[in-house]
Write a protein that binds this DNA or RNA. Structure first.
Length: 195
DNA sequence: AGCCAGGCTACCG
DNA sequence: CGGTAGCATGGC
């Protein structure tokens, strides 16, 4: 935090709310976070921003619209984010799920049962979309912890590292949100992970 | 020219 | 269970 400052994740409409943690405050913003979580799977955020803008222009950042739109239109819009066949399918499945929630906060298990939503996407959606203080783990986290010698096996499971992080930190929404965002920011900005 | 990017599913032993 | 191919585009 001293080095990089607050990250203000999750960006909504391209804006990082570093001094205002009241986001998200409506269903539209929550859905945008969910869509972003799916689109950014193994893909740089820069490409995701383009895809999100395309979706917005076409009024496709809406679960009710996505479930009915032609696949070709959806795929064209998200093409810059890569894996467009897979991600179009994921967005369709998730939109159906999101619509059925009717505004209710989903459980982690429910999210994991949606095709295309794995542990990191589920935790990102909960932490940043629904303000649930749950830890997000990604490949950067594993690499950083391995470099620091906190873990001795780079192949540690998602659940194990998640439990480790959660047990060593105060359960606090903003702390968890910044913790993951800062790890990503640090690893992105450094050619080498180590300080 | 390759490797990587805010992973996940399907399928293998 | 753990391990891995395939998925696709763009930046460096």
């Amino acid at each position: 935090m001293e080095r990089h400052g607050p990250q203000g994740w999750w960006p909504i409409n391209g804006i990082y709310h570093k001094d205002d943690y009241s986001y998200p405050h409506n269903e539209v913003e929550i859905f945008e976070i969910c869509a972003g979580a799916i689109l950014t799977q193994n893909t740089s955020w820069k490409q995701v921003e383009i895809a999100l803008e395309n979706l917005k222009k076409l009024n496709l950042l809406d679960c009710g619209v996505i479930v009915n739109v032609a696949d070709t239109v959806l795929k064209d819009a998200i093409r810059p984010a890569g894996y467009f066949n897979q991600k179009a399918k994921k967005l369709k499945f998730f939109s159906e799920f999101f619509r059925c929630l009717n505004g209710r906060t989903p459980t982690r298990e429910e999210l994991l049962n949606v095709w295309g939503i794995g542990p990191e996407s589920a935790d990102s959606i909960l932490l940043y979309g629904y303000s649930v203080p749950t830890m997000v783990i990604d490949t950067y986290t594993k690499r950083l912890f391995f470099e620091f010698g906190i873990i001795d096996d780079i192949k540690i499971s998602y659940g194990e590292l998640k439990s480790l992080c959660e047990s060593e930190l105060q359960v606090d929404l903003k702390l968890f949100q910044e913790f993951h965002a800062l790890i990503v920011q640090h690893c992105k900005s450094a050619s080498r992970v180590r300080i």
